[in-house]
Design a protein around this nucleic acid. Structure first.
Length: 423
RNA sequence: GGAGAAUUGCCAGAGUGGUCGAAUGGACUGGUCUUGAAAACCAGCGUACCGCAAGGUACCGGGGGUUCGAAUCCCUCAUUCUCCGCCA
């Protein structure tokens, strides 16, 4: 969530201007917020005046009683009726205004970083870097779902029977490969100084709001209504929420956390070739890296995270490119996002395998995640996170790009974890 | 799932209707003293909102209520602990 102080400062000009890069017209919302905010301040001021008066009178009544001046006390009591009712009235008004302002604030997405270009959709994303060469095959490369079927690695139909579409069953070397990659990713993250956590896979409403899944992406999460819990769409949610309502001591920077979790996404409305095989699932595995930073260090942290992901892809021997998402394609909560895509020769498409984002104070504001700056003022921290990496698509890319005529070669970095060198 | 007890500031812990944003101790920060440290002493030591400021308001697990006035009484929810039941 953006900071209301930020809107007051320049009448929201910076925000309105910045959000144009998302093709988001913030002006009417900002206007309404400003309008309601001044009303709110006025009412709030009045309310506090009355409250102060009430407090005064109450104090006096207390004194009178102690001095045994019953009558005077009762007289004073009688005077409070009018004040009390106008206080109640104002309170309702103030609460309403607050709620409305809050709702409006929820509508405003994060302001894109200065590096982010204006744009409407993925077509406007910029490719910032490209690494590696496309694999060449002297046979007909087949897509991963065929490879998976051929070697009995993943059974999609079985998943349909047990649960439904988008819940595959990994088996044999397919399951082992999956587990090996998780361990590899976690080990690499540990090497890079990230503390591993195993968080809950369900979160409460407060957590889902704090990282921005609610109220915005309600329909994307599985929701257990009975206990009012949400299944996590990414480890970002529980891990970042470890720091909800926390003022972190300066010496704790940088906070670097990693965690492997399954992720659950309803993916309502997806269909077609996008959902073929491992391309889009309702349940998938991911190793996430999360950072909480002093604002001064955010640029450096982002770069470090990018390099971490690059390192993983290079070790896996995959060709990839990095996109800086344009304003319109950048997620609601993010100030800037880099997507890592691996080229799949067999499918002739680029598969998104990682997404590294900085949120600046947007999440921290909802999280109430703060630190104390040099002059002891509490300030909002910055949060960042990235996938390192998301399993299904990286598995798909590996199977496809490392396929041989009658199997798949496992990259060397995984050998200690798989126990086998080929499929 | 049933019964009981509890939830107060960074921590421990007092406080059962008015002068309580909250005693006291510890931790921490600054100062005095010291060659330095320890000890002792003095001072400071929560968050947020409104306000140029003075100041005001709100917060004692969350929400609601009673009252002129609530940390204190009532309702409700959550969490923790103990006992019983069930169970990987």
């Amino acid at each position: 969530m953006l900071e209301i102080q930020d809107i007051r400062k320049d009448k929201g000009e910076r925000i309105i201007e910045g959000l144009k890069k998302r093709h988001f017209d913030a002006e009417p919302i900002v206007q309404e917020i400003l309008d309601l905010d001044s009303k709110w301040r006025e009412s709030k001021g009045n309310l506090e005046e009355i409250a102060a008066e009430m407090n005064q009178i109450s104090k006096q009544i207390g004194l009178l009683f102690r001095e045994g001046k019953q009558e005077e006390a009762n007289e004073a009591k009688a005077m409070t009726g009018q004040l009390k009712s106008s206080e109640a009235e104002l309170k309702v008004k103030v609460d309403e205004l607050e709620a409305t302002i809050q709702d409006l604030m929820y509508l405003l997405p994060n302001v894109p970083n200065e590096l982010v270009k204006a744009g409407k959709s993925e077509l406007d994303n910029e490719t910032t870097e490209e690494f590696g060469n496309a694999p060449s095959f002297d046979f007909d490369a087949i897509p991963h779902w065929e490879i998976a079927a051929k070697h009995n690695l993943i059974d999609f139909e079985l998943g349909v029977k047990i649960t439904g579409a988008g819940f595959p069953v990994y088996r044999g070397k397919g399951a082992q490969l999956q587990r090996a990659m998780i361990n590899f990713f976690l080990a690499e993250a540990a090497k890079a100084g990230y503390e591993e956590v195993i968080p809950p896979l369900f979160v409460n409403e407060d957590s889902a709001i704090a990282t921005g899944q609610l109220p915005d992406k309600e329909g994307q999460m599985y929701h257990d209504e009975r206990d009012d819990l949400y299944m996590i769409p990414t480890a970002e949610v529980p891990i970042t929420n470890m720091y909800r309502n926390v003022i972190i001591p300066n010496e704790d920077f940088s906070v670097k956390l990693t965690g492997y979790t399954p992720c659950f996404r309803r993916e309502a409305g997806s269909y077609g070739s996008d959902v073929r095989g491992l391309n889009r699932l309702h349940q998938f595995d991911k190793v996430e890296i999360v950072r909480i930073e002093h604002p001064n260090n955010t640029d450096a942290a982002l770069e470090e995270m990018m390099n971490h992901v690059k390192g993983l892809l290079e070790k896996l021997g995959l060709q990839y490119r990095i996109l800086r998402l344009c304003g319109g394609d950048t997620g609601f909560t993010a100030a800037m996002t880099y997507d890592f895509e691996v080229y799949s020769a067999a499918q002739d498409k680029w598969l998104e395998v990682s997404s590294v984002s900085r949120f600046d104070t947007f999440q921290a504001n909802r999280l109430k995640l703060r630190f104390k700056n040099a002059d002891k003022k509490t300030k909002l921290c910055h949060t960042l996170n990235g996938s390192a990496l998301a399993l299904p698509r990286i598995v798909a890319a590996m199977l496809e790009n490392h396929q041989t005529k009658d199997g798949v070669t496992i990259p060397e970095c995984l050998h200690p974890y798989t126990g086998f060198k080929s499929i």
